[in-house]
Amino acid sequence: MAILNVEHIRKSFGPTEVLKDISFSLEKGQVVSIIGSSGSGKTTLLRCINLLERPTSGKVMVNTDVIFDSEDPATQREQDLRKKRLHFGFVFQSFNLFPQYTAKGNVMLARQLLAKEQPDYKTRKKEILAEIEQQAEQLLVQIGLADRMDNYPHQLSGGQQQRVAIARALALQPDILCFDEPTSALDPELTGEVLKVMKELAEQKTTMIIVTHEMAFARDVANHVIFMDNGTICEQGTPDQVFNHPQQERTKQFLSRYTQG
């Protein structure tokens, strides 16, 4: 049973069609890497899946829930979006940590706000908040930032900030973790620490969609690779199929540029 089903997604910005009929599915515990040159629609696809952008047409399902269907207005209600987005964790290229909160504060904030909606929040407030704090600390230890919990984002390196952003996304225990070029904004010497954390997550069978330019990483970590070109899925398959035996001319061209460089 697929955890995520993406069916016939199209997205246009004005007259430009950025996504042209994209379909794929993802099993629980799998890692999908989406590769392709800039402007091929990778990021837009990711943003359509977690509804930061509204697809022009198509259908997105998580488990058996239809979270978006262009044919069914009942699935498009603005007020339901918030809950639906919680299926996904999202890690941005530019981190987007909240600058006025510490590393721990960033990880805790969303859960603290959600906790207020719990019916027993008033009576168990102390307990709940302690639990949230404990979880945040655990996550930060897990990503190797035990000693930077009380630092503000501007006091952290880019790699550390991105790791905090991953912890922040994990705090809500999403079904699927999405990464939008998580290392592209980092100095080369800092990408390693972020990739290491992601690799560990993959080993723990975290379901992930990773848009990336790190070909070696995609090959080593992903179960499934999607190569996008000009708004379509040009080729997909196991890393071995796509990287070692590409069928399409475009894929070969793209990969040769990367292996040379």
Partner: peptide, 15 residues
């Protein structure tokens, strides 16, 4: 204020 701040809030399920 960068747009990313709002988006980060949205993906974390904030109103």
């Amino acid at each position: 204020v960068p747009k990313g701040q709002e988006e980060a809030g949205l993906v974390l399920g904030m109103t």
